[in-house]
Structure formats: C-alpha cells, structure tokens
C-alpha cells in the first residue's frame, strides 16, 4: 500500500513543480487539471485499499467537481484573455 501511494505522490509532485515554475496562465491551468485529477485518483485508490466506500463516493464526487471548477475558471480566464490582458 505504501509503495503505490508514494509512487502516486511522486507523480503528483511533477505538476506542482510545473505550476510553480511556469509563468503562463494556461500552463498553470494544465497543472491544476493534472493535480485535481491525480489527487482524486489517490483518494479512490486509498478508498479501495482501505475498503472504505464512504471515502470512495467522496472521491468520485471530487473527481467530477474538480473538473467543473476547472471549466468555470477556464471560462472566466478565457474572457480576460480575449480582452488582451495576457498578451506576451
């Protein structure tokens, strides 16, 4: 159990570093999408390993809600992008 989670944690560190390093807004959004999916997948794996279905249901909900938040934020940022705030 430890090995799987530690491997997933190491995979999670890659997009966190990417979000810190990259200065472009869409690169940060990509990192956010990656992290939101990875964390909810970790919740699902932990719920299966612990055989705890309460956490499992919450993991599924977070998986869908995290992507909904991403889409809402992306829409607002896209409108600002069209107004010329993020021209290089």
């Amino acid at each position: 159990m430890n090995g799987i989670i530690i491997a997933m944690l190491l995979a999670l560190l890659i997009p966190i570093y990417e979000a810190y390093r990259d200065s472009h807004i869409w690169q940060k959004m990509l990192a956010f999408a990656s992290i939101a999916t990875k964390t909810s997948m970790m919740i699902l794996v932990v719920s299966v390993l612990r055989d705890d279905w309460m956490i499992g249901v919450v993991g599924v909900l977070i998986l869908s809600v995290g992507n909904a938040a991403l889409m809402l934020l992306a829409h607002v940022i896209k409108r600002s992008d069209e107004a010329g705030l993020y021209e290089p």
Binding site: I16, A19, I25, K28, M29, A31, F32, I35, A36, T39, S40, M42, I43, V46, S47, D52, M54, I55, V57, V58, G59, L61, I62, G66, A69, L70, L73
Partner: peptide
Amino acid sequence: VMRGILGAVAALVYALFGAADVAL
C-alpha cells in the same frame, strides 16, 4: 489557480484522515 491546487491537495489530505464530509 494556485488556490485551486491547494483545494485539491487539502481535499486529498482530509479524505486520507477519514474526514470524507470535510473533503467534500
């Protein structure tokens, strides 16, 4: 965007500690 990342990680930590309602 960073606050969104923090929220995702916080939900993961809360779920790991067994607080499924707080994570949701």
